[in-house]
Amino acid sequence: MSISLSKGQRIDLTKTNPGLTRAVIGLGWDTNKYSGGYDFDLDASAFLVDQNDKCTNDLDFIFYNNLQDPSGSVLHTGDNRTGEGDGDDEQIKIDFNKVPANIHKIAITVTIHDASARSQNFGQVSNAFVRVVNEDTNVEVLRYDLGEDFSIETAVVICELYRHGSDWKFNAIGSGFSGGLASLCQNYGLSV
C-alpha cells in the first residue's frame, strides 16, 4: 500500500521495504489553462551531491542532456516536452546498490524550460506529484502531491533521497527557486 506524504515529511525507503534496491521516481504535472502563446516544457533533473550538498562534477547532474551518471546508478528515461497524458510525465531510475559511496543525497528537481522568456512559472502548474515505485515489483511505495503553493518560482526541489547509515530515506521538500535551472545548479555547486 502506498504512503501519501506531506511537505516536510521524511520516511524510510529501504529499511521498511527490504526488497527495494531499484526505484523509479515518477514525476507528473498538469498546466493550468494559459494563453501565453507557448507550450509548457517541464524538465526533471537529479543532482547527486556529497556530504556538503554539492555536486563534485558536472556528471553528477542528471537531466535530458546527460541521462546517466558514470556509475550507472541514476538514469533519466528521457525528456517529455509536452506533459500530455496521464501518469508520470518523466521518470528517473535509481539503483541504490550502485550509488557511489561519496554520494550522500540525490535531489530530484523540476524546472520550466525557458520560463522567463515564456513568462511561465509554477503558479501555472497544478497536480504536481512525485512517486516512488519499486522497479522490480512495480508497486508504488509512496507518493507526495505538491499542492498549489507556488507563484513566481521557475524551479522546484521536489524531494531528496538521502543516506541514513546503510539505508536510504525520502524527504518531501517542495521548495521553490525563482532563478530556474541556473539557480538550482549554483545551489548544488555547479557553474552555469
Rank of each mutant, 00 (worst) to 15 (best):
I3S: 10
S4F: 05
S6H: 12
G8P: 02
R10P: 04
L13W: 06
N17T: 12
G19M: 11
R22W: 00
A23V: 13
W29F: 11
W29E: 03
T31Y: 06
N32V: 10
Y34L: 12
S35T: 13
D41W: 09
D43E: 10
D43T: 09
L48G: 05
L48F: 00
L48P: 00
D53G: 10
K54I: 06
K54G: 05
T56Y: 09
N57G: 12
N57L: 04
D58K: 14
L59K: 14
F61S: 02
Y64S: 06
Y64W: 11
N66W: 10
Q68A: 13
D69N: 10
V74K: 07
T77L: 14
G78C: 12
N80L: 00
T82M: 10
D86V: 12
D86Y: 11
D89P: 02
I94E: 05
D95T: 12
D95R: 07
F96C: 09
V99P: 00
P100Y: 14
A101F: 11
N102E: 14
N102Q: 13
I103H: 07
I103C: 03
T109L: 00
V110W: 06
T111R: 01
H113Y: 15
A115Q: 06
A115T: 09
A115N: 04
R118I: 11
S119F: 08
S119T: 11
Q120W: 03
Q120I: 06
N121K: 06
N121R: 09
F122E: 04
F122K: 10
F122Q: 11
F122M: 11
G123Y: 08
N127G: 03
F129P: 02
R131M: 08
V132M: 01
V132L: 06
V133W: 02
V133P: 07
E135F: 08
T137Q: 09
N138E: 14
L142T: 00
D145G: 01
D145H: 05
G147L: 12
G147A: 07
E148T: 15
E148K: 14
E148W: 02
F150A: 01
S151A: 14
I152V: 11
I152E: 15
E153F: 04
T154A: 01
A155M: 09
V156K: 03
E160P: 02
L161I: 15
Y162K: 09
K169D: 15
F170K: 09
I173P: 01
F177N: 09
S178W: 09
L181V: 11
L181H: 05
S183H: 13
G189D: 08
L190I: 10
S191P: 01
S191L: 11
V192P: 02
